[in-house]
Design a protein around this nucleic acid. Sequence first.
DNA 1: ACGCTTTCTTGACTGGTTCCAGATTCTCCG
DNA 2: CGGAGAATCTGGAACCAGTCAAGAAAGCGT
Lengths: 149, 149
Amino acid sequence: MPTTADLEHLLRGAALRVTRPRVAVLSAVHDRPHADTASILGAVRESLGEVSHQAVYDVLRALTSAGLVRCIQPSGSVARYEARVGDNHHHVVCRSCGAIADVDCAVGATPCLTASDDHGFAIDEAEVVYWGLCPACSHLSDHGRKSGV
Amino acid sequence: MPTTADLEHLLRGAALRVTRPRVAVLSAVHDRPHADTASILGAVRESLGEVSHQAVYDVLRALTSAGLVRCIQPSGSVARYEARVGDNHHHVVCRSCGAIADVDCAVGATPCLTASDDHGFAIDEAEVVYWGLCPACSHLSDHGRKSGV
DNA sequence: ACGCTTTCTTGACTGGTTCCAGATTCTCCG
DNA sequence: CGGAGAATCTGGAACCAGTCAAGAAAGCGT
């Protein structure tokens, strides 16, 4: 967990001005990976007091386009942010509770980057989402068969 | 492109009642792969006249859960539907114009299905989205360098 | 054709996200 | 250090895809 000084350094390194909300948002994203905007807004307000949701949305977009955070949106989920950038990792998403966990590439560095037929597209990234049940939810379905959670 | 009779057969085979809206939606999804809900609604209204959007949403959900169509939602895009089901294929998405094309699995049958560390998740599907530029958009950026499309 | 069940229509509503205009704050440069 | 300029924050309203609910209509099996 980076210190405030680290976070400020990150911001300056990305040519972004250092402001209270930005540091707080960056810190929140580092603290709780895969958090949605509402959680981040809550965390920021806990540390700073009242902050407009607009500021958080704006900061998140700035951080995303600066490459300091990454935005992921699995189907049926709101936007979620994480601070793990640079490494090409993927995610497992629980169909039942929506929990997300990080997964490193299975095969070498860029497993599926080479599509069989790219249709002339200039591909620069392969994003993989694994769908399944998290330990807790798959355990539940073992016990109570009827639980259509 | 299946005939109306084929579509009706598909519906009955899935234990779904055959209604005008359902046949029209199914036909629209077969006609234009990766269409969003609005396009489908438009296509249905062209062939049937006024149809409520609610009906289309409802039909799309019924068809999806019956396995007759598949729903995909790349980040930053609305829900899109396609009739290619059963085969485990993936998609290339253009960052610029949002165009989508089908891609077959690169390595064997289930390339990335085996995550390096599944965190105890019971994984049943790996969804791959390739990001890049479609032929048209990458061509455009070759010519006009300033076009920050 | 009848009646039960499912499906379609109508209309309103939600929740996440974005847009806007103005006030504030920060950084740069003299 | 002080002013100019630009970026940022605030607060409110708008937007859109998708959802909920109740009643009317249509499909299916007999």
